[in-house]
């Protein structure tokens, strides 16, 4: 993961560090929901993680550019939570893609650090690796 984030960050160590922290944060959110960790300690720990991610120097510097991808991708992720176990195959198929919406945040960092060429170079291979890693969890055909 770190190697990929280094490519996205294009030599910016703050960006690379923020991506690692945002990635951990997103997975912590996912764990609360997927593993139903609704106890106060788990929920509060994620909320503290949020403040640390958003107080990070890279986010402080670029927060206004990162905020909208974060919010819209969070919205899409939540849609995927509702659809990933839906009886309709097409909803599960869509959810399979939508649950990777957080990749938009990664690509927004790529845009900030390396511009369009960096984003174009990395986005498709990254989506492919996401598919290979996660395929078929909810009965979606390969």
């Amino acid at each position: 993961m770190r190697g990929f984030f280094a490519q996205v960050a294009n030599g910016n160590p703050l960006a690379e560090d923020w991506l690692c922290r945002y990635y951990d944060f997103a997975h912590a959110v996912d764990d609360v929901i997927d593993l139903e960790r609704w106890d106060p300690e788990s929920v509060l720990a994620v909320l503290v993680q949020a403040s640390e991610v958003y107080a990070h120097p890279f986010y402080v510097l670029h927060g206004l550019r990162l905020q909208l991808p974060i919010i819209t991708s969070t919205d899409t992720y939540l849609d995927s939570v509702h659809w990933e176990k839906a009886p309709e195959l097409w909803k599960r198929q869509w959810a399979e893609v939508m649950r990777h919406a957080g990749n938009e945040v990664i690509m927004a960092v790529g845009m900030i650090c390396g511009g369009w060429e960096t984003v174009r170079k990395l986005s498709a291979p990254w989506m492919a690796s996401c598919f290979i890693y996660h395929a078929d969890r909810y009965g979606v055909p390969k």
Partner: peptide, 24 residues
């Protein structure tokens, strides 16, 4: 999940406010 995610979005809005960014 909906209420948890709403909380996290509000966290993002709060922590992107200019005063927080200045004294993060």
């Amino acid at each position: 999940p909906d209420k948890f995610i709403a909380l996290l979005v509000h966290a993002n809005v709060l922590y992107t406010l200019p005063f927080f960014a200045l004294h993060a």
